[in-house]
Amino acid sequence: MRKTSDEKLKLGLFVIIGLLLFTVAIYLIGERQNLFGKNDLISVKFSNINGLKKGNNVRYSGINVGTVESISMLNDSIIKVDLLIEKTMITHIKKDAIATIGTDGLVGNMLVNIIPGKGKETSVKAGDFIKSYTKIGADEMLNTLNVTNENAALLTVDLLKITNSINQKKGTLGMLINDSITSNDIKKIIINLQKTSYNASKTMDALTTKIESINLNESVAGILVNDKAQAQKVKNIIANLERSSQNINTTLDSINKTIQQIKNGKGAVNYLSTDEEFAKNLDQTIKNLNEGTYKFNQSMDALKHNFLLRGYFKKLAKEQEKVEKERLKK
């Protein structure tokens, strides 16, 4: 009899500890999905949720504050995402906060990031909608900007080379033009130039659109400014753009000079003018280039006016002033 009650005790311990382990597991999982405790529901509308799932985390300034409660389609393009936010955290989220969808690390789960607004608005309440921003667009934009940049840089380097050689070696010009092979090569170069400049103007177009889209949503700029890595990226792009545009300007100057010289020239002019197609091509190229640079400048303007980059340009201007002042001092 003694033995059996001992057995019962042990069995009881075994079962209780086993069930306790299970309950702890259930609780810990539930806690991380905010199934317990007091929560409020707020909603966000997205156009693309990029594989977000029910139960994914919600972060506010990098702190886990809740989970995704449900995802539903409102119509063919808008997805409503309900977020379950801990009651203690919800007061910190203001009405102008912006929700974006991101990933936890390189290969992690999808999550909803809530980025604080300016803090002037009142706190959100249960059932409120907050603004969303599809961050994927921003990534895309930055990528396009980079590509454009690289293209522009390459193009301008080529142009510079050619025009420089034309400018510096005046004597060789006639020789070059007389040499049919070389002239053919030049033709090819010019055709390529034409193509490139056309592409450049196209990418510039795209760039402008992108940048305009940044302007459309001023608050989004806040995201980018707050995000250090992104900001650095943008800074680099802008530096490159600046450089490229300077290059393009120099190139255009020298091309203009060259054309002028050719126009004013004697033997070469005849040759060039007789070759109508060549001249036309050259003209078109220059036109494209001009257009490209115009659009480029426009983009730059847009960038300058952009809230996000205003600070950067101001800083740039200040530095320039400084340099100017130093020069004046000297």
Binding site: E7, K8, L11
Partner: peptide, 13 residues
């Protein structure tokens, strides 16, 4: 049942 639970549960633990 308890006896078997003890035999199977505790003794396999």
């Amino acid at each position: 049942l308890l006896r078997q639970c003890y035999n199977m549960g505790n003794k396999s633990l």
